[in-house]
């Protein structure tokens, strides 16, 4: 499953990129991942479950704010 992401820039490490995805409330979540997790402007994430219009996904790495799992809008997922 892939989520649209923005602000795709070089990450700190070799072959890393920093990207931003939006959570269900519209907050930006920044995550630094190996470049292979991003294709065509979309980040590979993993669907864990759902609740109403929101889907809980796990990011490929811990976000820079510390969380691995975020709620995202079902439409995006």
């Amino acid at each position: 499953m892939r989520l649209p992401c923005s602000d795709i820039v070089d990450g700190p490490g070799p072959s890393e990129v920093s990207v931003t995805v939006s959570n269900a409330t519209g907050e930006k979540v920044e995550v630094i991942v190996h470049e292979s997790f991003v294709k065509d402007g979309k980040l590979e994430v993993y669907r864990i479950g759902s609740q109403g219009d929101s889907v809980l996904v796990e990011l490929p790495r811990e976000s820079t704010r510390g969380n691995w799992r975020i709620w995202v809008n079902n439409v995006l997922a």
Partner: peptide
């Protein structure tokens, strides 16, 4: 860190 608005890329 951990707060809304914290951005590692800007810091970096």
């Amino acid at each position: 860190p951990g707060t809304q608005g914290y951005n590692y890329h800007d810091l970096k």
